[in-house]
Design a protein around this nucleic acid. Structure first.
Lengths: 203, 203
DNA sequence: TCTTGATTTGACCAACTGGTCAAAGAGAGG
DNA sequence: CCTCTCTTTGACCAGTTGGTCAAATCAAGA
């Protein structure tokens, strides 16, 4: 049943996804037009709709592909590693993603901001499960005295928010800082922030 | 030149601003229609445009009014108060705003996310100046040994991001937590986070 | 009550936009 | 060279939407 994709299909689908990311992340779903995406992809509008059923289909495909990438860093949190190094490593990976994939971050943020109508299910299933599992791990680390007492859910929220801030609010950050690139200092700051938060007090 | 506003003008302008906030914060600028706003305001579409030149004018008016409210908590950071209490108080005020004014927070976030085309000037002027001043204050606190060493700019960014997260990413937070109201625990968590970050090490 | 200016609206319009479709073009295997 | 399938597109359409306008309505002072 599943016919294999031809090379030309692969190329054009990829071009559309890429163009969609570029355009949607700049103008949002409603703010973007098929013409814009078509132009960015180097295709005609009807040609777009030959590969994707609708504008919404492009957007949804983009979001779903994005979700995997987005959950991956948290998935890599290793229960058997050194607790503080693991969490700081997670912070590091997330901040690096904000630096390297700001469009993805903004697309995601926009979707959540507007009530996440396209991925509500994903959030309350996959994401919730994953975070729940990692919360248990963190609580175990705490019980073992490896990290200071902490609410694992809000710890994760604060990692998400602080790291994604540098992608999502990039304009504001740069307006405040002037021309300086924020990421170097941000990495140092966040490392310190979470290190101080998690280092267990000396008994 | 400036004719005083009649009572009816005040009432209708206020109704439009309120309706605009409700609608824009839910659907974004491009995603909202004049008809939606008119309906929410209980006015006809041409009547809206009697009070505001255009859809964009409503949006801009909303943003500008919002900016004051938004900067206010930071403005209240008192250089002569107790450093840690002042900063924790700021965190507290910001989180309370996320709880009480989530629509305002989301409207603002959406604008920044899409490149802040309407308020770029505000950001690089007023906001930049204000943050710059407060950064000096924080650095002085640090020099006086009242707080642990910290990059004041990124400290402020992290306060913004962690607190606003609970308004802007509300759907996600609630999806992860299930039904529980996040704000109580969030307050405790953030208080701990920034307290541990800022408490100077014992010499 | 009358007058004047403020307020309200039904009808309308032009631009935009998502999506359709029939027909033309390309490519690969025979 | 032919044919069959995949790919591409120009022309088109209907619904939506921001915005206009002339006419109607209302409110308050004289």
């Amino acid at each position: 049943m599943n016919k294999p994709e031809t090379r030309i299909q692969q190329r054009n689908r990829a071009a559309i996804m890429s163009a969609g990311l570029e355009v949607f992340s700049q103008y949002g779903l409603r703010g973007s037009t098929l013409d814009q995406i078509a132009e960015a992809a180097g295709l005609s509008k009807p040609n777009l709709l030959y590969y994707f059923r609708s504008k919404d289909a492009i957007y949804t495909a983009l979001l779903e592909k994005l979700l995997e990438t987005w959950l991956d860093p948290l998935l890599k949190l290793n229960p058997h590693g050194d607790p503080i190094q693991e969490i700081l490593g997670y912070v590091h990976r997330k901040l690096t993603m904000s630096k390297d994939f700001p469009r993805e971050s903004r697309l995601f943020a926009n979707e959540i901001l507007l009530g996440a109508p396209h991925i509500a299910e994903h959030l309350s299933k996959d994401l919730r499960t994953l975070v729940g599992e990692k919360a248990v791990v963190i609580k175990e680390w705490e019980a073992a005295g490896k990290i200071a007492p902490v609410d694992p859910y809000h710890l994760i929220f604060s990692i998400w928010s602080t790291t994604q801030h540098y992608a999502d609010f990039d304009v504001q950050v740069r307006a405040v800082l002037g021309g300086i690139d924020p990421f170097g200092d941000a990495m140092n700051y966040l490392d310190t922030l979470f290190r101080r938060m998690l280092t267990p007090p000396k008994t």
